[in-house]
Amino acid sequence: MSAERKKLLSVAALSLMALFLWWAQGHLDGYKIQILNLVAINIILALSLNLIYGFTGLFSLGHAGFMAVGAYVSSLLILPAAQKETIFLLEPLVWPLSVLQAPFFVAVLAGGVAAALFGLLISLPVLRLGGDYLGIATLGFAEIVRVVANNLPGITNGALGLKGIPHYANIWWNYGWCLFTLYFIVRIVNSNFGNVLKAIRDDETAARAMGIDVLRCKVISFALGAFFAGVGGALLASLLTTIDPKMFLFLLTFNVLMIVVAGGLGSISGTVIAGVVITVLLEWLRFVENPIDFGPIHIPGIPGMRMVIFSLALLFIILFRREGIMGMREITWDGLACACRRGGKDRG
């Protein structure tokens, strides 16, 4: 397929997506829009983790920490000054932050940049570790961020958290950032730098023997992942309009990790598919917690049932399809065309 045609198809797909979002905004109720928004944010988060873990092979469990940094930085920039005065009950907000204001786009960007800076800062010492050790070290980083947030009431309002964050993160912002993340990460992965990352993942010693500056590449990948994690955190904060340190527990990282693993480590399409499926499934499965009547048989609602079913589904994925939904494959226009042709031949 020619590059021209692919471009055309991409533009068509994009406009279809935009049309769908425009239709959704007008016709779907708030519940479904909330889930659509969460889908976009989860995709951003999962893509950023996939860059770190799936493409560079760095087992990182620090995502909640980067999200927290992004969420706090951007929230403090968009909170109206009056709101800042009323919610800081324990200690007033420290000076420069109490007057700083920024438009939403700048605030989200600042959140991402701050998270990336933290990523740079911890990656230099931590990335000398490998495998499980790196996982433990990054997990420690996320915990440190949370504990520090608890103990700095002058900046984060401590355990009381921030509330009344303006709800700027609508469908357009979320999907705009999601698209930007997708584009950016696809471009990186398909570039020469992406090949370097994959080489490091597959065999670090061989990569080093080829003359690759392994640490430098790892640090860049880690910081980029942290940037998008911060962006995701910032969007989530604005979508929920309230954050507190308890939100950024290890479980949050686990949710993102689940999407990445279920979608396929090292597959962008897999991450996007899993992001949609898992976010929607988590909500849709709520019906199993309601009382159900099968004719004469009455099953009372059991809270937590949803997670049981969910865990079973994950078990099945890991047992029978360890590489995730997509493995390392990608959906491309070429692949689709190929499948279409084959389908056509079968019919014919």
Binding site: G30, K32, L38, L236, L240, I243, M247, L251, R286
Partner: peptide
């Protein structure tokens, strides 16, 4: 109509949206 919010912020917001909209 009882809905579980799993002691989680995102779930709590979703639960309320569900109660109201659905």
């Amino acid at each position: 109509i009882v809905v579980d919010n799993k002691s989680d912020k995102v779930e709590a917001a979703n639960a309320v949206v569900r109660l109201i909209e659905k």
